[in-house]
Design a protein around this nucleic acid. Structure first.
Length: 634
RNA sequence: GCCACUAUAGCUCAGUAGGUAGAGCACCACCAUGGUAAGGUGGGGGUCAUCGGUUCAAAUCCGAUUAGUGGCUCCA
């Protein structure tokens, strides 16, 4: 039997060999850190018996794709084993590895408490110390069913029942625990080193709210303590940056019991919101957009035309005016359609780019609300683009460039995903084809990378989603570009072509921020509250040492204010150390200390963010510096 | 909406064999005019989320409601 390694070398073996034997033959050290192997493109466990020649034999360590999942999947079985030892009546459901860890779902009498998690962790420690070999075995479907019925595992029985009649079902067993599982796994439980149970929460069996609510335990595992600690620190860091906490501390926004999911913006948060709007208007003006504003409340007839009254009803707030039904808009498009339809359009006017910062309201489920990230009223930085079919590709390219420009200003990296026609969809095949190809071609021609989500588009058209990554590595879906055949059709949009005939334009809607509210939430976490100067609610603060400096401080402040700089003066009867502490906690980028010396020399002692030493500047120089930051969006 | 948990002063939190509330910060007053992350002293402030029940007595036990948190589902 020949085994070809990634370095091109070939090793020959005789007799029965497992993957682990080969890994050991390569090096004992490697065997200690190996989690799985990739054999001819497929990930297998180390105990897999090898048959025949192998063209590709890659050892997967924890850090390799496949290795991590194998490791964490084994950890999840250990967790399930521990739970079954403590609560023998618990029914196990599924327990996969996920992005940063793993979970396992259980059907138990009582939900898990934090103390239970500690207990489970302790039991896991024992199982790991007992170092059971993890063995795989296979059964035909009927025997597999019998085994799981005997073990009284109804969820596993259900899973097996969904498999084909002739399926060979694989199981893994470790000590007193046997689980239905496709694998792969580590060779023994002792291989799991660093793990931590994180939380317990309800989760529906198979993700459907029609099913029973199970108890899910989220946990994570790493192959060394250092990385586990690093990950836990990252979670801590994320907690510290939580926009709900910072939003309260920095007085940016508030959520009140009187308006669940309807955020209040406080003066400082409003400055950020307005700066985002100003910037948005600036870039859109340059990109030849016009801006409109359409009403928040519109008649039932309109929503019937758009289809929302029947398809989106449960998310809409409705009201009556003079005995007629009205709805508060959950989306801006219908209003935009009405504006387009006000007068006939020539093909010479297209493309038309019509922006709207539209405030929409959606009745989201109470349990879905989350700070500014998920609210019931929010402002979309919407725009509707009307164009000729042959203009789609170019418009898509321009829109991508626009969104790219916006994200780059905030220092976000991002990736794109293209979602294609879902099974349940409306529209003509040729429209879908044209739109999908236009999106694809635009991406390809610009040399952009993207993921394709087959069948994940909206029912009315394909879309490109932008997923931006914040500075601690979390991703957020913000921008989207969607082709929409339904609106143009339903509202019977038209333009007069060169042939003098009426034609249907192609309509695209797109957002860049997504929603101002969510984007602000993301910005708060991305910058951990330390906003760039142009977004800082207070850009400079004058701190006086004694009240002899007050006049000079006000003088400097009015100079800065005349340059449009947001400036505050702290003349309170407090020590300078105290004032500095507060100004720093408020994340003010330029903190100027003013005492007798500064008055004498007509200077400022400026403490800039990230610098230990003060910089001596004239008031004019400070104003120039801040103006420069603002101009360059720093 | 569903499962679990939480709700005490503006903020962060103490307060269990049920006996009608406490700290720090913030706020106010006074003293100190002090040079780079909290100067000192004093003071005001709470229908213990809301409603109901058990009890001689409820912040504390029970139930409901509201809101929040962690998830599920959904999503900008």
């Amino acid at each position: 039997m020949k085994v070809k390694l990634p370095d091109g070398s070939v090793r020959e073996y005789e007799g029965k060999m497992t993957a682990l034997d080969v890994v050991r033959d390569i090096s004992e050290g490697l065997a200690r850190v190996a989690c799985a192997v990739k054999i001819d493109g497929e990930v297998h466990g180390l105990t897999t018996e090898l048959t025949g020649d192998i063209d590709e034999f890659v050892v997967l360590k924890f850090e390799d794709e496949g290795g991590k999942d194998t490791y964490r999947h084994t950890a999840s079985h250990i967790m399930a084993q521990a739970v079954k030892r403590i609560w023998p009546d618990a029914k196990v459901a599924i327990g996969p590895a996920i992005e940063n860890g793993f979970y396992y779902d259980f059907d138990v009498e009582k939900p898990f408490s934090p103390e239970d998690l500690t207990k489970i962790e302790a039991e896991m420690k024992k199982i790991i110390a007992e170092d059971y070999p993890v063995k795989r075995f296979e059964l035909p479907r009927d025997e597999a069913l019998k085994l799981m019925e005997e073990k009284q595992e109804p969820y596993k029985v259900e899973l097996i029942n969904d498999l084909p009649e002739d399926a060979i079902i694989s199981f893994y067993t470790q000590g007193d625990f046997t689980d239905l599982c496709a694998g792969p796994h580590l060779p023994s439980t002792g291989r799991v080193r660093s793990y931590k149970l994180l939380s317990a929460a309800g989760a529906y069996w198979r993700g459907s709210e029609k099913n029973k609510m199970l108890q899910r335990i989220y946990a994570t595992a790493f192959d060394n303590k250092k990385d586990l600690k690093k990950h836990l620190n990252m979670l801590e860091e994320a907690k510290k940056r939580d926009h709900r906490k910072l939003g309260k501390e920095l007085e940016l926004f508030a959520l009140m019991e009187e308006g669940p999911g309807f955020p209040f913006f406080l003066p400082k948060g409003m400055i950020i919101k307005n700066e985002l709007v100003n910037y948005w208007r600036e870039v859109h003006r340059k990109a030849d957009y016009v801006e409109i504003s359409t009403p928040i409340i519109l008649s039932r007839q309109l929503w019937e035309t758009s289809g929302h009254w029947t398809h989106y009803r449960e998310n809409m707030y409705t009201t009556q005016i003079d005995e007629n039904d009205f709805a508060i808009k959950p989306m801006n498009c219908p209003g935009g359609m009405l504006v387009y339809k006000m007068k006939p359009h020539s093909y010479k006017e297209l493309p038309m780019r019509v922006g709207e910062l539209g405030l929409v309201h959606r009745h989201e489920m109470s349990g879905a609300l989350h700070g500014l990230m998920r609210v019931r009223s929010f402002t979309q930085d919407d725009a509707h683009l009307f164009m000729l079919p042959e203009q789609i590709k170019e418009e898509i390219k321009k829109t991508i460039a626009l969104i790219d420009e916006i994200y780059t200003v905030f220092g976000f990296s991002y990736h794109m995903e293209l979602s294609t026609r879902p099974e349940k969809s409306i529209g003509r095949d040729e429209d879908w084809e044209l739109a999908t190809n236009s999106l694809k071609d635009a991406l390809d021609e610009e040399g952009l990378e993207y993921v394709i989500n087959e069948g994940d588009g909206a029912f009315y058209g394909p879309k490109i989603d932008f997923h931006l990554e914040d500075c601690i590595g979390r991703t957020w879906q913000c921008g989207t570009i969607q082709a929409d055949f339904q609106m143009a059709e339903r509202f019977e949009l038209e333009y007069i072509g060169a042939d003098g005939q009426k034609h249907r334009p192609v309509m695209i809607h797109r957002v860049a921020y997504g929603s101002l509210e969510r984007f602000i939430g993301i910005l708060i976490e991305h910058f951990a509250g330390t906003f760039p100067v142009w977004l800082s609610p207070v850009q400079a603060k004058m701190l006086t040492i004694t009240d002899r400096s007050n006049d000079y401080a006000y003088e400097v402040a009015s100079l800065l204010e005349s340059r449009g700089i947001r400036c505050e003066v702290d003349t309170r009867n407090e020590k300078i150390g105290f004032k500095i502490r507060e100004a720093r906690n408020e994340r003010v980028p330029y903190i100027a200390v003013i005492g007798d010396k500064e008055i004498e020399e007509s200077t400022l002692s400026v403490r800039m963010r990230g610098k230990k030493e003060d910089t001596i500047l004239s008031p004019q120089e400070l104003a120039d510096k801040i103006a420069d930051d603002v101009l360059n969006k720093k």
